[in-house]
């Protein structure tokens, strides 16, 4: 993906760029809001990482200007203002996801890749596929290697989220947000427990495990 990072903190921007480039993305940097808007308009990016507090032009006004221009590039908003109301403000201004500082790079990566994929032309899908696993979103059924797997509604949504990002890391926070709609971090390993139950249903009877734990980051469903 070609990604534009608009961030005034040079060290943080450099780390983000380095990290994203390591996993094969092309990254441009912009140090202030004006430059960021100019660059976003002049080139076709797959995703934008946008800090809210920027010199010259703040992140939200940049985003609003971009959207008014008809630009639908997916945007991940970064901010030290991690409160839910700020999150709502950011999403309302046209952001696709919101990540509060402090974030870990894996969290950032997972989220950027998640929004970057959203512009797939086949955006209205009724069937998801990962490896030998298939999910029918209308019939609410899951099969692996032709074998039917029975899931509870929440397990279904958990698996759906993992399948939509198959092959990518999905963090615990992302799962809590997307599957449970909670925007706080529980102190316990509550997500791990749900994952291990799901794993018991989808991996136990098969030779090759599909659901992997990525240490210090989250989970990945093998594509």
């Amino acid at each position: 993906m070609r990604i534009l990072v608009v961030e005034d903190d040079e060290v943080a921007a450099e780390y983000v760029r380095k990290g994203l480039m390591e996993v094969g993305h092309v990254v441009d940097l912009a140090g202030d809001g004006e430059l960021g808007l100019e660059m976003a308009k002049s080139a076709d990016y797959d995703a934008l990482i946008l800090d809210r507090m920027l010199p010259k032009r703040d992140g939200l006004s940049l985003l609003t200007a971009l959207r008014e221009d008809g630009d639908t590039t997916p945007v991940l908003i970064l901010s030290a203002l991690g409160e839910v109301d700020h999150r709502v403000e950011g999403l309302r201004a046209g952001g696709d996801d919101y990540l509060a500082k402090p974030y870990s790079f894996t969290e950032l990566l997972a989220r950027v890749e998640a929004i970057g994929r959203r512009v797939d032309p086949s955006s209205v899908t009724t069937k998801l596929k990962a490896g030998d696993m298939e999910m029918d979103l209308l019939a609410r059924t899951v099969t692996r290697a032709g074998k039917k797997i029975l899931l509870q509604p929440r397990e279904f949504r958990l698996l759906e989220c993992l399948m939509r990002h198959a092959g990518k890391v999905v963090t615990r926070t992302m799962l809590l947000e997307k599957v449970w709609d909670y925007h706080f971090d529980p102190q316990t390993n509550v997500i791990d427990v749900h994952i291990s139950r799901l794993r018991a249903k989808i991996d136990k009877e098969f030779d090759v495990p599909m659901l992997h734990t990525v240490r210090g980051a989250g989970y990945r469903l093998q594509d």
Partner: peptide
């Protein structure tokens, strides 16, 4: 903003 940004950097640095 000011404290979390360097802390985030610290964490990213350690992670990397």
């Amino acid at each position: 903003h000011d404290l979390r940004s360097p802390l985030t950097r610290l964490r990213t640095r350690l992670e990397n």
